[in-house]
Each structure stands twice: as C-alpha cells, then as structure tokens.
Simulated scan of single mutants.
Amino acid sequence: MELMSIFALACYLLAIGACLSRLLHHQGPDKRWVLGSALTAIAAHGVWLYQDIFISSGQNLSLMNVAALVSLIISLVLTLATFKLRTWVILPVAYGFAIVNLAAATLLPSHYITHLETRPEVVVHISIALFSYSTLMIAGLFALQLAYLDYQLKQKKKPLFHPALPPLMTVERQLFQLIVIGAILLSFSLLTGFVFLQDMFAQGKAHKAILSMIAWLMYMTLIWGHYIKGWRGKPVIYATVIGAFILTLAYFGSRFVKEIILT
C-alpha cells in the first residue's frame, strides 16, 4: 500500500511539473504529459484509498482518509474538465492538495471504523455531503482563479491573454454554475442529515450542522445577490472563499482536534 501511495505522489508531482513548466508557453502545457501523469496518479490514489478504507473490520472513514477522498474527487473532476475548460492554472493547486492529503493519510494513519452496510441511508447522506463539499471547494479554486485574472487585468499583464488562461467572464460564469450545483447538493446534504441522522444536534456534533447551515445561507445569499442584484467582483470572491472555509470547519474542524491533535 505504501508503494502505491508513493507512486501516486510521484505521478502527481510529475503532473504539477508538466503543467507549471509550460504554463506560460505560447501553446500552453503539454496535455499528454499532464493528463497522462495526472490520471495515473488519480488511479493509484484511488486504489490505495480503496484498500485503506475498506478493511476487514468495517470502513475506515478517518479524517485523513476522508480528506484524501475529497482530494481525489476534486483532482478527478478538474482533470476531466480540462477536456472542455481551461483549468490549467488551478490544476497544480488541486494536485498539491492531493499530495498533502495523501501523504498525511499515509504517514499519519488513523482509524474511525464504521459499518455503513447496516445503514444504507447514511451512505446516501455521506455521498451527497462529500460531493457538495468537493463541488464548493472547486468553486473556491475558481474564485481564486477569478481573483488572479482580475488582478492581471488591472495590471494589464500580457499573460492574461495567454491560451492557457480562460477569459474572465467565462470563469465568473463557471464559478456561479459551480456554486449553484454545490448549494443544491448542500441543501440535499442538510435535508438527508435531518431525516436520517437522529444525533445531528447532539453534543459534539451540533457545530457541524450549525456551520453547514451558515455556509448554506451564505451561498444562497450569494446566488440571490448575483442573479437578482447583479453582485460581481471581489465581494463574490471573498464570500465564496469564506463559505468554503466555514464548510471546511464544519466538516473537519472537531475531527482534526480529536483525531490528530489529541491523539
């Protein structure tokens, strides 16, 4: 398993190098090298994670494994998106997070054994929650990309018009599409949590529900403000990043303290 993890890490590094080395080249990054090494890394990442989650005693949904799973989803989605969208700027960031999370899961193993086969409805809730979080994290990356393009535009930098960089308005449109999809999934995540989880507001878990609802309210307000009031620019970028941060605290805050700091 460790060899599989090391192989995935090496391929992620190769993908980052292939992307950054030609990011400002007049033809952009070499797609074959980036996508080939990235998809190989993602496959190895998935195999390692499957073996570490599905063990004989149940499913090991430790904090590190869940973080590595989120990184896997984000890396896969953004890699596949390159066939339609120009996501080259944010690919190294996504792969960098995957490296950090996969390395942490390998070097700092922990266990949080569950038995999801006895509660299929919880599997539905967890799956929706993971996809909503991953989608909104990708929206956060798009917001950072939007901020970078906006800065380049104001500085009148030539790289702004590089073929590897998408148009500003295109990124803004894609950002709000991601926010809408993520907010819908987050709505279903909260709904299934209320329906299937009796201890959603129990001691030690209430903060997750409260923070998730605060993030949901922020995203819904952002959607309303953009489509009804025409909100754009820096307020949108700040709100998207803050919403992603709040959601990260909701999903991982207390578990990080319990599983990493206090162990």
Rank of each mutant, 00 (worst) to 15 (best):
N101E: 06
L102C: 03
L102V: 07
L102A: 03
L102Y: 04
A104W: 05
T106S: 10
L107E: 01
L108P: 01
P109I: 13
S110R: 07
H111K: 13
Y112I: 05
Y112P: 00
T114I: 12
H115W: 08
L116A: 04
E117T: 08
E117M: 03
R119Q: 06
R119Y: 09
P120H: 04
E121C: 00
V122F: 06
V123F: 03
V124G: 00
V124M: 01
H125Q: 10
S127C: 07
S127G: 07
A129R: 06
A129D: 00
A129W: 09
L130K: 01
Y133E: 00
Y133S: 04
T135S: 12
M137R: 00
M137G: 01
I138W: 09
L141W: 11
F142C: 03
Q145M: 15
Q145A: 13
Q145D: 05
Q145S: 09
L146P: 04
L149S: 07
L149D: 04
D150E: 14
Y151E: 14
Q152C: 10
L153P: 00
L153N: 06
L153W: 14
Q155G: 05
K156T: 12
K158I: 15
P159K: 11
H162W: 10
H162P: 09
P163R: 10
P163Y: 14
A164P: 02
P166E: 11
M169R: 09
T170S: 14
T170I: 08
V171R: 15
V171S: 06
